[in-house]
């Protein structure tokens, strides 16, 4: 089946000599919910810019649903919707005007665009603001406006570049639901970049991590998380003895007078930890994961791009 997105040997060197992309290869299947992660300056936005014709590539090939952007750019663009990282609409234009104009650029008549705009704006909670100038909207509303604008031509591939940055938790959750529904019901392929790794872990089925202009990892979310064979738990206790408690088979670190961190290898289970602590008269009040699992892997991959993700 034709890939929703196919990138081959993509290079980008800016005029100032910065090599932003060093030959990345990437494929996104149709209907996928794909995470493209990487630290700031890793090359994510450059890659997205090239896919969306906002940045000129130095070399390489990009295909969107089989349409090569060098040979059939208009067809590729028709399949593509972009929700960029930064607000990029005219601040003096109205909400509905922005949406209808965007549809017009795709050859959709004003009448049809207005028909499409209403349910979209209603779904995103912007219908009441349709006549407001975009500069009058709150940050969350502006984000939703960009999503509506990116969807008005019903693209088969939607690229969301940090869509939930600076959005409160409640709105973020509702945007997650919206994106999931879009992927599930309308079969829209979604490529998501985000710094909220919890977001990527919850939403995405496949993942690529880009670092220093290279793909550091490209696999399914399940396979990537399976690489993590060690989890760190934080345990709050009623109190610790003066000397650091030793628990056979586990690495333990004391955080403060009541709190310890324990590394648990996959398959070992945590029962042994409780048994050992109980023997030493230490009562555990609560326990939590130290960090998001994906976050741990991400940090390791980014800090050691050529190393193994395993501990």
């Amino acid at each position: 089946m034709t890939k929703a997105l196919s990138i081959k040997d993509l290079y980008k060197t800016y005029d100032n000599g910065t090599q932003a992309l060093k030959g990345i290869n990437l494929e996104v299947e149709q209907g996928d919910f794909f995470a493209l992660l990487g630290p700031n300056g890793a090359g994510k936005s450059t890659a997205i810019g090239i896919i969306c014709s906002l940045v000129n590539k130095s070399s390489g090939q990009v295909e969107v649903f089989g349409h090569d952007i060098d040979k059939n750019l208009a067809a590729a663009k028709t399949q593509l919707g972009l929700v960029p990282q930064e607000f990029n609409f005219n601040m003096f234009e109205g909400v509905e005007q922005i949406i209808v104009q965007q549809a017009g650029y795709y050859g959709i008549s004003r009448k049809e665009a207005k028909k499409r705009a209403q349910p979209l704006l209603e779904q995103l909670g912007l219908w009441d603001k349709r006549d407001a100038q975009s500069r009058e909207l709150s940050g969350g509303m502006k984000r939703r406006l960009m999503i509506a604008r990116g969807l008005i031509h019903e693209p088969k591939l939607l690229i969301l570049d940090e869509p939930t940055a600076g959005v409160d938790i409640e709105l973020r959750r509702s945007m997650w639901e919206f994106m999931q529904e879009l992927n599930r019901e309308k079969k829209t392929t979604i490529v998501l970049t985000t710094h909220y790794l919890e977001e990527a872990e919850s939403l995405c089925r496949n993942i690529a991590i880009i670092n220093h202009g290279e793909i550091a990892e490209n696999t399914s979310m399940k396979a990537l998380l399976a690489k993590l064979d060690l989890e760190t738990f934080v345990l709050d206790t009623t109190g610790l003895p003066a000397t650091m408690p030793k628990i056979n088979g586990y690495d333990v670190r004391v955080r403060d007078e009541t709190c310890i961190e324990v590394d648990v290898h996959k398959g070992d289970g945590v029962n042994g930890v409780f048994e050992e602590l109980s023997k030493q008269g230490i009562t555990v009040l609560s326990m939590r994961n130290k960090a998001n699992r994906l976050e741990e892997l991400f940090v390791r991959l980014v800090e050691n791009p050529h190393g193994e993700a395993k501990s």
Partner: peptide, 14 residues
């Protein structure tokens, strides 16, 4: 300046 030109650049407008 406002980067709203990108609205056209990402679309298939020639």
């Amino acid at each position: 300046y406002q980067r709203s030109i990108e609205e056209m650049m990402v679309s298939p407008v020639s």
